[in-house]
Nucleic acid binder design. Structure first.
Lengths: 222, 222
DNA sequence: CCAAAAGTGTTAGGAGTACACCCATGG
DNA sequence: CCATGGGTGTACTCCTAACACTTTTGG
């Protein structure tokens, strides 16, 4: 097995300005120098893949404690011109709270791009990104991943906007609110967001209540 | 990255005698010599992970053209006492047609074990197997994987038995048949299975019709 | 007072679930 | 003729989807 190496690449999603966006870095070295790529890098000697992903997430995006899940391993022998490199792709979701941190990490090189309007990508990263997007769209329908894309306190309209952004279609406001309420996983706060016109009530996701439901196999039927 | 190696391990499921079973091999060399393990091996220089899995599937189980899907990559630095070995796990489903072939492959060393009654396994294979089982149970509910566990022609009772075996609970016969019929993905044949008492009509899975439904996001609500 | 987003109930149709008996065959 | 598995319909409940107006605030 001549010279096999393993990298970890991370597709980092966020919802900004009601669009789903991905964090990309600009490559400073060949191959694909100057092109955009998903952040990632080689794994270290004594770390698991997940540890490597967490490390990269901090080094390249400046965030910790965000949602992270293994996506898929890509292994076409020709996917990297430098030689045999397998990559294990992860995907991460970051909420609006953390988004500001990223500017501090490596602002000149990292940037957000809407998933509908991406630049050409290095390696097979276009393919990886499409795979991540499909996974995200699927997971929205049967998990609470969408909460990971919001700040700690959020309004129901913001929550609905995240769903609509990821699913790519409008949802009925009354039906949406009824279903969310039925799940009983939101804690209403005694705070109101005074930004728009009429103030909107703020909510917090109650992971505790959600845990109770998970075992019963609750779906999010939108 | 001292001496990183990558293996592929394959959890091979089949339904035999109305139980869900897994194919295990007995290790002939250390470490874990004499213990049971999921079939697998190191990847070759110029093959993708999927190609490696297909190769192992043929070498160790004697089957081709079966359902195969990448499961997860396991990477605990201590998972293999020989050194740093990452494994990419796959899971495969084989139908009753192919089951006989396996005897020819390496009968002395390979054997079927019911998932509810497994011997101690080498490495972290217990963990991998549990992960595969969970994935299978999930996929049954929203894909047609169960058809992969049947011969080309089958009766509705056989199909129902596969669902019941994987889900681990009995299903109502009339509701089951109505839902399957509603999906319109079975082609009834003009053949009857004359084994039991009253002959049972044979059916064939119509992948063609299923493809049309997939885009519409059809679920299997059992 | 006007624009913009927040908030709120009802109804009709479809899907899911529970349930029991007759039929065809081989021995 | 009997044991075994094959095959069929209905009624009730619950979930889903469609749909429109009033309220509150800032400018």
């Amino acid at each position: 097995m001549g010279n096999l190496r393993v990298t970890v690449d991370i597709v980092i999603f966020a919802v900004r300005e009601r669009t789903l966006q991905v964090l990309l870095v600009k490559r400073g070295v060949p191959p694909f120098q100057g092109q955009h790529a998903i952040p990632g890098g080689f794994i270290h000697e004594d770390e698991s893949l997940e540890d490597a992903a967490l490390r990269e997430l901090y080094e390249e995006a400046g965030v910790r404690n965000v949602f992270l899940e293994q996506l898929y391993s890509f292994s076409d022998p020709k996917r990297d011109p430098r030689g045999r490199v397998i990559t294990v792709a992860y995907f991460a979701l970051i909420g609006s709270d953390e988004r500001t941190l990223i500017a501090g990490a490596d602002a000149a090189e990292a940037g957000w791009f809407p998933v509908n309007n991406l630049p050409p990508l290095a390696f097979d990263h276009q393919h990886i990104l499409e795979y991540a997007l499909e996974r995200l769209r699927n997971k929205v329908e049967y998990t609470t991943v969408s909460f990971e894309l919001l700040p700690e306190k959020f309004t129901l309209s913001e929550l609905q906007a995240v769903y609509e952004t990821i699913l790519g279609r409008p949802l009925d406001k009354r039906n949406f609110r009824r279903k969310i309420a039925l799940l009983g996983i939101l804690r209403p706060l005694r705070e109101w967001q005074r930004t728009g016109r009429k103030p909107a009530q703020l909510f917090r996701f109650s992971a505790h209540r959600f845990e109770k439901l998970k075992d019963k196999g609750i779906l999010f039927p939108f």
